[in-house]
């Protein structure tokens, strides 16, 4: 995940999939992709912005919107929020802004799994709709890179309402006839899968990301059978017709640039 940031003193990191130790410097140069088994590790949002945008072009939007505890939820919600702020350098589970990719202006949302599992509460909803509103006003394409376990439980029904709120933003893009592209990364499930992640013009996914609505364990308990290993992966949904392409992380920037160029050249 974000080993690179957590233990910078260690020279080696262990791949979370194959367990093989990888030289830290190589791991980072490889965009957190294991050079032995090609496993795509979860990537911090700010690192992703650095990799995707032309150098020095990224400008952040709405960085000071932060969560409250609207239901006075009894578990240590506020404490957890503070911890994740320190851990990720973000105030909630999404980074938004705009910049250029190979010269093409684009607005972008990048979800941060390290912040409460990328869960969507009021802040993610507000930042997504502001992103899409701004993109449609400025006539800019929008890309959202998702990484989320779903709605944020501690905000109860406010969280469920964000499914409609964020989709309202998508509608703005449709009305403005501007391209809206999503990139589903590991994991994109439940509330986020069931809203702005899956109603884009073009839907890309990183290899072997877990995607779906219900969790694997819940399904297995319900149907009382084991599910195959590739169930609910990017490749699975590519085959079933819900994803346009599975794109390797090393090729994501190039792919986005190609698409932006084509939409630009209409």
């Amino acid at each position: 995940m974000s080993e690179a940031k957590e233990k910078p003193e260690e020279l080696w990191v262990k791949c979370q999939s194959c367990g093989v130790p990888v030289f830290r410097k190589t791991f980072i140069e490889n965009m957190l992709v294991c050079d032995k088994c090609d496993h795509h590790h979860k990537m911090p949002a700010r690192m992703r912005a650095e990799i995707l945008f032309d150098e020095g072009t990224f400008e952040e939007w709405d960085e000071n919107i932060t969560s409250v505890n609207p239901l006075e939820f009894a578990d240590d919600y506020e404490e957890k929020l503070e911890k994740d702020k320190v851990k990720t350098g973000l105030k909630d589970a999404i980074l938004t802004g705009h910049g250029k990719i190979e010269g093409y202006p684009v607005s972008m949302g990048i979800m941060e799994f390290g912040f409460r599992g990328g869960s969507m509460g009021s802040v993610v909803g507000e930042k997504v709709i502001r992103l899409l509103e701004k993109a449609s006003e400025k006539g800019m394409p929008a890309v959202i890179i998702t990484a989320s376990g779903g709605a944020r439980m501690q905000e109860g029904m406010y969280s469920l309402m964000q499914l409609a709120k964020t989709n309202a933003g998508v509608l703005r893009m449709e009305e403005a006839r501007l391209p809206y592209i999503t990139v589903l990364t590991d994991p994109t499930t439940a509330g986020v899968a069931a809203s702005y992640a899956s109603v884009a013009d073009i839907i890309l996914a990183e290899p072997k990301a877990i995607i779906g609505f219900s969790g694997r364990r819940v399904i297995e308990q319900t149907i009382r059978q084991k599910l195959p290993a590739d169930f609910q992966t990017s490749e699975f949904y590519l085959e079933h017709g819900f994803i346009d392409a599975v794109v390797h992380r090393h090729k994501l920037r190039k792919t986005l640039a190609r698409l932006l160029a084509m939409f630009n050249g209409k």
Partner: peptide
Amino acid sequence: AYPGKEAEEKGQYEAIAGNILKMM
């Protein structure tokens, strides 16, 4: 929503998202 194998194969999440967008 039904947490079943076929429901996921047929895109449960997309079906829900599509309706929400439509209803907006």
